[in-house]
Design a protein around this nucleic acid. Structure first.
Lengths: 156, 156
DNA sequence: CAGAGACTTCAGACGCACGTGAAAGTAATA
DNA sequence: TATTACTTTCACGTGCGTCTGAAGTCTCTG
């Protein structure tokens, strides 16, 4: 049923997609290794073995992921081993909802308008419109997410 | 009024934002050099001078941008010099509307579900939900853009 | 308290994408 | 046809992020 080789390829392909978006590659691999596991927690060693990477790489990746709030570390009492679990089943939703990137762009654009001498110059107007567009998106995305959640709720 | 140094910084900062999204840095610089120009067309030489980069770099960047449909090349009759103009005043809108990335992720996720043995396994279910989420976004974004266009139209 | 197991840190190597600068290519002018 | 103006191509150098592997640290067990 489950095709381990295909799963590997999937993890690799998906990680590539994420890293195209600026996500650290190894962190992406770890994230999908956890998502594609039938177990709901994995140790650092498990991750290193399944991904066939060094323990150091795993260490850096889980640190990134826990800092970002995507993964939760669960120390095992009476053992040096830590287990990792997805902090949020639908991390992608939370990630998109924030979308600080849109805000950063809007902010940068706003400074641009000032540098260009206000929204009444040719170029200033263009950048101002761009800024407004990104502000609009930044506002709309949460609404979109809400719609998604409603739809999900309705499906049950 | 117009602060050239601040404009430079703006171009640089904005390009950085774009390249964080996987956009080629030099292409981003050229794009914003054109957007921030008061002229509506610029030659390759203009671009090289304003950005203080080599002509080779400009050549590669404009090729990328014209191929992507963001810039239009306008040969000047009786001259070897070409001028470049924004192909679309609101290229960002068009770019977001396409958003092939979301589709790619959904496609990859779909293969993942198969590899995991269908949507009835623990991990398969998680990936299937993720897939549906990205399909949802892919469908919603065009609606969002429509809303934006309506709002813009209303503002006139 | 010694040893084993587990994670972290860090210096080094590696690969990759990017921009440079020079040389070649192409088209207009004389 | 030679010259000039502009663009494209490409081999090279560089910088950056990333992974490895070994050494270090910590903590539980015997």
């Amino acid at each position: 049923m489950r095709d381990e080789e295909a799963v590997r390829q999937f993890v690799e392909r998906m990680s590539r997609q994420l890293s195209d978006w600026g996500f650290p590659p190894m962190a992406a691999r770890v994230l999908f290794a956890v998502m594609t596991a039938e177990e709901d927690t994995l140790s650092a060693l498990d991750l290193a073995e399944r991904l066939d990477v060094s323990s150091g790489a795993v260490s850096g990746a889980v640190r990134y992921l826990t800092d970002s709030g995507l993964l939760r570390r669960e120390p095992v009492p009476g053992s040096r081993r830590d287990l990792y679990r997805l902090a949020n089943e639908s991390w992608w939703e939370a990630s998109l909802t924030k979308m600080n990137r849109l805000k950063s762009i809007a902010d940068a654009a706003d400074e641009g308008v000032a540098a260009l001498g206000g929204p009444d110059t040719r170029s200033g107007r263009a950048i101002a419109e761009m800024r407004d567009f990104f502000i609009f998106c930044h506002d709309e995305v949460p609404l979109m997410m809400e719609k998604w959640r409603e739809r999900q709720a309705a499906q049950d």
